[in-house]
Nucleic acid binder design. Structure first.
Length: 123
DNA sequence: ACGTTGACTCCTA
DNA sequence: CTAGGAGCCAACG
């Protein structure tokens, strides 16, 4: 445990490793949110750090980080992929429905599946 | 050591 | 739909 950390995260390298591990498991045609990845990595409030991890992952690791989107179903900012069109194209190739307004239908593509208790009785 | 800054999320208005 | 604020926490200057 590195003393310089506030103590909430056990070890940055381990957290990042878990994040990459989870991202790698997102199936093609599905997407996941930063917050959900953070939860799966065992650190529920570190959604921003997941984004940081993505920005640092870059090319060496071959991660499907285009499948990580924010909770509203909107795409990453332009500078991340060199334009939203890039990420949109990647997702559409995999069968993810991205609207022309760059919105993903999260109810349909979210991975893992949302808890059943969240599903409406009237859907 | 401290202020700022994010590939974030949540809540209000 | 937008706008602002708060909470979040590692990274960076």
């Amino acid at each position: 445990m590195d003393a310089r950390y506030t103590g909430l995260i056990e070890m940055d390298a381990l957290f990042y490793e878990r994040v990459y591990n989870e991202v790698a498991q997102i199936p093609a045609g599905r997407v996941c949110t930063y917050g959900r990845i953070a939860e799966l990595a065992g650190y529920p409030k570190a959604s921003r750090e997941v984004g940081l991890a993505m920005s640092q992952a870059r090319s060496e690791k071959q991660l499907p980080y285009h499948r990580v989107v924010n909770k509203n179903g909107t795409l990453a900012p332009d500078y991340a992929f060199g334009g939203k069109e890039k990420q949109k194209a990647l997702l559409r190739e995999e069968g993810v429905a991205v609207s022309d307004e760059d919105i993903i239908d999260m109810r349909r593509h979210m991975w893992p599946d949302a808890p059943l208790t969240q599903l409406s009785f009237f859907d």
